[in-house]
Design a protein around this nucleic acid. Sequence first.
DNA 1: TGTCAACACGAAATCGGTTTCGTAAAATGA
DNA 2: TCATTTTACGAAACCGATTTCGTGTTGACA
Lengths: 340, 340
Amino acid sequence: MKQKITIKTIAKELGVSTSTVSKALRDSHEISIDTKDKIKAYAAMFNYKPNSLALQLRNQKTKLIGVILPRIVHHFFSTVIKGIEQGASEKGYHIMVCFSNESYKKEVENLKVLSNGSVDGLIVSIAKETLETKDFTHFKDLVNEEIPLVLFDRVVDEILCDKVVVDDVGAGYKATKYLLNQNSLKIALITTPEHVNVGTLRRQGYERALSEKGISVNKKLIIEVEEKENIKAQIERVFDQDIDAVFAVNEIYAATAMRIAKEKGYKVPQEFSVIGFTDGLISEYSSPSITTIAQHGLEMGKQAVEVLIERIEKEAEVYEPKKIVISSNLKLRESTKPSS
Amino acid sequence: MKQKITIKTIAKELGVSTSTVSKALRDSHEISIDTKDKIKAYAAMFNYKPNSLALQLRNQKTKLIGVILPRIVHHFFSTVIKGIEQGASEKGYHIMVCFSNESYKKEVENLKVLSNGSVDGLIVSIAKETLETKDFTHFKDLVNEEIPLVLFDRVVDEILCDKVVVDDVGAGYKATKYLLNQNSLKIALITTPEHVNVGTLRRQGYERALSEKGISVNKKLIIEVEEKENIKAQIERVFDQDIDAVFAVNEIYAATAMRIAKEKGYKVPQEFSVIGFTDGLISEYSSPSITTIAQHGLEMGKQAVEVLIERIEKEAEVYEPKKIVISSNLKLRESTKPSS
DNA sequence: TGTCAACACGAAATCGGTTTCGTAAAATGA
DNA sequence: TCATTTTACGAAACCGATTTCGTGTTGACA
């Protein structure tokens, strides 16, 4: 790379001190108009840009927010990033994005690298593997060091920090209730294994809606999809039962279930209804398009970054972790019958 | 934030100089075993982490790569990010991601912020607005400053830097030829306005395949979709013509076209074939699933970051800009008839 | 003409590390 | 015993900015 022009260069070239140059560029009254003009002209001519590292070191802040996500090729997470970036950008921050690839080890690594002063704060959604192992010491260390941290979507109570989540229980409840209201009473639930707690919460909503209606939960109608194995085959099994609707905790499961239903000859939505989670492109463009719980990823990202920046900029008085719950809503499409 | 522990703290606490601490932690032979042990133990106990800003300033490198994308909620771009991150991570680099939102102004801003020393190099895909205005001075300035830059996917010849692109002409050719071979002779092309040159290149491939077959290009079969207006309505117009296949330059257009075809009563693929571009989730999960040109975003990201890091780390001898072309291939699915 | 304030600028400290060079004390060798 | 080499460490420069404090020169005023 070409030799960068620094304050020192300008000072030497113009026969003044570095302090004078610095003050001149910041328009200090201490410097005479003549000198200021000369220095500014020189700086402009050679396209001088202050070295941000030097500034960051001196000011002890980077105006950078670290973001660690389990995945990126994923509609919900990329929407959240967009929200984070928008919110950050408005406040003059930039984002550094890393991925854990759902791996515990990579998450620990990323956290270590980002917590050595390169960012002012962190926004994280926990990796699946970490949720399984339940080892959260790397997060607790961070909290101990008092590095501002916001968790979103996949969170755990053990870690004392700000959190942003969707109302998963409520969402599961809403979806299930909608299906019940349109007279689908034999509703299968396609969810994740227990350790991914968003799945568990959505399931609670499902169960609550059923029991309100006086229907007992039939475990045979609940499939916990193990992602390492063939997803379609696992979902197909639930069709051995007598069912007339499916509530799936994500888009892929919903689309897969609908496909199977169509293959089995069901007419969607007349004979069979489907509701998914996450309002992504699959739901929008499959045919029929799929009714989903909209997760408001953009909103989540914005909220997360807002809380984080507040935490960064306000000298922490008494630290009271916040939990922001974003309510989700049903986006009606063609895979369900109109509400009665 | 809690007061960070620095080398100075350790030095004072242990009654040695900062140089001794630094050397001890780096396991220098100049320091006695005893002292080293003492210092290391202290550092470990208080969880000392060297401040990365200080290191970056001293070493004049950040091990950071800036990435500027037009959009993020987009299958292709998020796949590229994944590739970039993987490649970067392997070489000990991290990525800083910004978005231009297809806006010229934001692109200029991002470029300015990232080029003040905060990153060692940049990977960029140009915003649509910039492609329209054709003002590339911000990129040229970067090249003049000799900041390593790699453009991908949306590139322009004017900017003298490394580039990674897919073989858009070849891809358009392959797709069109496949349709011709299965006896679809009245192929509509749904593409972007001219300034987005990937669209133009894919169109060239389309035209070449047609003329090889002795079919003259019918302009009425070519739709240039203006994204600000209603996409579906624009695509619908081409169905006024007598057509039996569609080649679309992206997923959304392909899915929309297929939907229209089905609404008009065509049987896909028996009576009507569809080929899209970008192998995303829509193509995979729509029904019938859509045959596409796979763009190999992951591969692109990896290649881009590899070239960039090479440029960063090799003291630029003679600078000869590289252009890497990634060949794309047809991913056959249900929206086309089997190859004859 | 002497005093003091205002002006315009420079020296040096600081941020948190690394690295070169210098040196006192101990060890070695003749 | 004296000269020389190691050993083990510290002082200081450096990366590129900002900022405090100090100071020489003017000009104003008594």
